[in-house]
């Protein structure tokens, strides 16, 4: 098992191209697919979910990581140290 994974890791460049071909393949597949019951307008646009996903994914990473950096992130002992301050 570990050997297979090491082998794959050694050929990461090939994997990368396989991945890009796969992405292209999903878009081509979307041209062929029949749309029986579109739930809303997005369902009848070819490649809608690809665009939705990449925008959503990047947006989510930037938004969440940004919010974490400017506000939410704290030391992992944030609550602990407050406790021990109080004990002293």
């Amino acid at each position: 098992m570990a050997q297979i994974l090491s082998y794959l890791q050694a050929h990461a460049k090939v994997l990368k191209w396989v991945f890009f071909v796969y992405l292209l393949g999903t878009l081509l597949f979307d041209f062929l697919v029949e749309r029986h019951h579109p739930h809303f307008w997005g369902d009848s646009v070819i490649g809608f979910w690809a665009l939705f996903t990449i925008l959503g994914c990047l947006g989510m990473i930037v938004f969440c990581k940004g919010l974490s950096h400017v506000w939410l992130a704290q030391r992992e002992d944030f609550y602990d140290s407050e406790d021990s301050d109080n004990d002293e």
């Binding site: 991945f19 999903t26 979307d30 979910w49 506000w71 992130a73 992992e76």
Partner: peptide, 29 residues
């Protein structure tokens, strides 16, 4: 088709942003 697109392009998003997603020893409020 919808699922394959969502999964594939999420992978692309991770591939592009992997440095930015690097774990940090923090916890969030």
């Amino acid at each position: 088709s919808e699922t394959l697109q969502i999964l594939g392009f999420t992978g692309l998003g991770f591939y592009l942003m992997v440095k930015y997603l690097h774990p940090e020893p923090k916890s969030n409020l």
